[in-house]
Design a protein around this nucleic acid. Sequence first.
DNA 1: ATTTTTTACTTGCAATTTGCAAGCATTATA
DNA 2: TATAATGCTTGCAAATTGCAAGTAAAAAAT
Lengths: 138, 138
Amino acid sequence: MKELKQRSTCSISTSLDVLGDKWTLLIVRDIVFAGKSTYGQFLQSAEKMATNILADRLALLEAQGILTKAVAADKKSKFTYRLTEKGVDIVPILVEFILWGAKHGPTIVDPGLLAELQTGKEAAVAKYQQLAREKALT
Amino acid sequence: MKELKQRSTCSISTSLDVLGDKWTLLIVRDIVFAGKSTYGQFLQSAEKMATNILADRLALLEAQGILTKAVAADKKSKFTYRLTEKGVDIVPILVEFILWGAKHGPTIVDPGLLAELQTGKEAAVAKYQQLAREKALT
DNA sequence: ATTTTTTACTTGCAATTTGCAAGCATTATA
DNA sequence: TATAATGCTTGCAAATTGCAAGTAAAAAAT
């Protein structure tokens, strides 16, 4: 796992030190918007993350206190990854990426989600944050 | 300049295809919050971006229609980089990175800016977007 | 007029990171 | 007891990054 180095004291820069790559936020996305929680589920996403990259990023996110790793309730050979409060606080960032991509990129967004975000962003953010918190308790 | 490839149709993923690295958003930050506009000014930031990386990212951002490059008003040997509307729409993303970093990271944020963002996020976003638009006209 | 400086890059190369394929270890199922 | 599921680890080539030096056009200084 690559070690984290802080490039400056700027909060945008330090956020990018942790989240600034092509894969990390996709894991958080999968937890928040796709209800995923296991290594195998993350691997099945459309972007086809490599197994070593996934393992590296999960370890990094855990080390940063963004998610927790626990043995699954049903199987001892399975692990469940959930968001901490620090992770739940990433939801607003994801929402802004959704809105920017939907407006300016060649993307397909669930129309229900998009409408929800465009008509009441704060309420939608709060809703998905609460859903993530509730899953973290199971 | 590395070519852009779209990994999926997810709007978060396509946004990360363009903005998901450690440097790109720092350039946008420097334009929006530090009033910078030239290659030399971007190089002077605290994070010390390498010259080849800066040149690559500026070309990529221009190719993506996020910023424009124009000969400076005072000198023919100088270029001025400004945000397009697509670039101005990145401001909300930057704001969420500021808030997340300020809350969870070891950072130093201008207290005035932080208070402004925490008390009236939407108004602050609109203000910095308008400032960027006005500079783009000069 | 000529040299020096400013400004914006480009180039070469070593080091790091990524991406792909295969292998391994533990637990669960047949 | 063998097979499958699950979560990784390893090896290696390819791509990207980071550092230092070099280049080219325009501006300023002499």
